[in-house]
Amino acid sequence: MIKAEWFYWLVGLSFLVMAAQMFTDRSNPRRFGTGAFWGLIGAGFIYSSWVVTKQAPAAPLGGAVLVMAVLAGFGCTGRGTPRTTTPEERAAGAARLGSKLFVPALTIPAVAMVCAVGLKHVSFGGEPLLQEGSETILGLGLGAVVALVIGMIMLREKRPSVPVQAGRSMLEAMGWAMLLPQMLATLGAIFQVSGVGTQVGKLATAVLPEDSLYVAIVVYCVGMFLFTIIMGNAFAAFPVMTAAVGWPVLVGHFDGNPAAVLAIGMLAGFCGTLVTPMAANFNIVPAALLELKDQYGPIKAQLPTAGVLLGCNVVFMALFAF
């Protein structure tokens, strides 16, 4: 069976190799901080395997995470001059190789698709080939590895250091944004155990007047939207808002259709995901990956759509659920 943890080790290992390159890159004025940051992430990826199975304490990893945050937060990380090709060389490469260049790039989605659809059901000797529940992650990982092999052969590139260098300079360009989604997931968990959710639920019930169906619908949808903005994740908002308003008031008191109320309520939360920097993996990481100067660029592009769709969800709930 191919396990998800193997791919976490591969990711961790490639971060470690890239960190070693960063330490020796004299073109980077902050090479030690940069190397330490990515080295810690890489080591953390591997150590996490034992944290997940409770065989190792989580506190040292937590300490390492805070060190990473301090390294990146106080500007101890930087980037070197990427060793890459000139625009002329790229244009020549495109002219020479043509659309063959798309083959490895499209291999990633193609393998991901095969894993999600086909290999999901394949098993050897009673054990599934891909770890259950991790098929999509494994598909992406396998796709990347297969694509790299195809790319190296096709481009007749014999030095493995070349793709590692290329990946490394993209990592350096993204910097702290890479770690933010994982930090935010942690914050969500801390909010949960500290009772932030129950407090927000109480607030929502407090502003809710009795016996007004339309106000209750708006409170549920807008509550999902705002709570998602705070938590960065509709999944964290859903249980709280549903326990406070969705189920007791909309389904219980007003006798709404539960499937419609809950499905549309969740989508109102998704409108919040579109506009919050707390959903860093969707909003901040792409900005870094696309080398935008304005890290809120994607959020600004999504804001009007999110507003209109929130309104749509309120209307749909009122129309279809009651």
Partner: peptide
Amino acid sequence: LAAFGEGFAN
């Protein structure tokens, strides 16, 4: 600290 560690791992 443990919450930060578990959050990262998960």
